[in-house]
Amino acid sequence: MSEILLEVHNLKTYFPINKSFISKKKDFVKAVDGVTFKLLKGETLGIVGESGCGKSTTGRSILKLIEPTSGEIIFEGRDVLSLSKQELRKLRKQMQIVFQDPFASLNPRLRISSILEEALLTHGIGKSKKERRQKILEILQMVGLSAFHADRYPHEFSGGQRQRIGIARAIAVGPSLIIADEPVSALDVSVQAQILNLFQRLQKELGLTYIFIAHDLSVVKHISDRIGVMYLGRMVEFADKNQLFSEPLHPYTKSLMSSVPVPNPESEKKDRIILTGDVPNPVNPPLGCTFHPRCFACMEVCKTKNPRNIEVKPGHFVACHLFEPEIMDQETTSNFI
């Protein structure tokens, strides 16, 4: 469990935008701005955040589906960013992705068997057609579909079934890491639970490691071992699941958790922290801590200085000035903690 599978260090992905046509001055959307974490073998790491916080870009940058601007991605001891195209392709056999929209991520003109066979062919799995067919049927069985589904087209399936096919395609090549980018958010609640169970079963059977990206806190809590909370391109808090939910530290995490409606009309009405304003424009993020204009515990230092990552307890990281030792000593802020 303690073996490190993937190490992401100071990952940055900036998208250039030409602000002015004439001056050619370049601006950047800092989609991912300095994300660092370690992923252990066999665990599920959840990444949560609101739309535009960079969680999907982080996932795609790790697979190098989007070219990161800088940083280090070490997968099983190899630096992903320095690999050649051929080497990268070989490595991708180890790391696969499941996309959010099961309606857009399957080629409508291919039968399910061809969609899966393509993955096998790319990575040279199965010597003969017969062998590949056998493998395809096996995989379909594994994700809860039947052999007769193999010769159908994507439009003949419901959303949940299509997501099963997306998962089948990912596990077909025998990866060790699967990045699941909002895999259940397009599904109905009753079907969502089926897919979450499938993810958990496959993890046990195949010893998979997941990075599970989602915006739904209850889903992330259910499936993850450790969770990272992102805001505007930065990982603002990172901790073990139970630690994070019993003791959220970052003001953003706190308000995010209190915003989630609880499906129990008789639960105590919690003191909801309602954030004012919207997520700021990532082209022009606020100076200092990007969260400070919406933060209920904002201090002077937050407006100018970007907080560093502080390990408050073993394995519990938070990027917030409140937890700088010298500030924690002051009594005035202690009621926020």
């Binding site: 419901s158 109905d188 079907v191 639970a193 979450l196 169970n197 806190l217 209850s218 939910f245 609880v262």
Partner: peptide, 24 residues
């Protein structure tokens, strides 16, 4: 009952969700 059992809870720990089988 099935719908209520399908949602992961923020408050308690569940090992496995009990989904409704099949599709809408």
């Amino acid at each position: 009952i099935g719908l209520l059992n399908s949602i992961p809870s923020l408050e308690d720990e569940q090992d496995n969700l009990q989904p409704i089988e099949g599709n809408v």
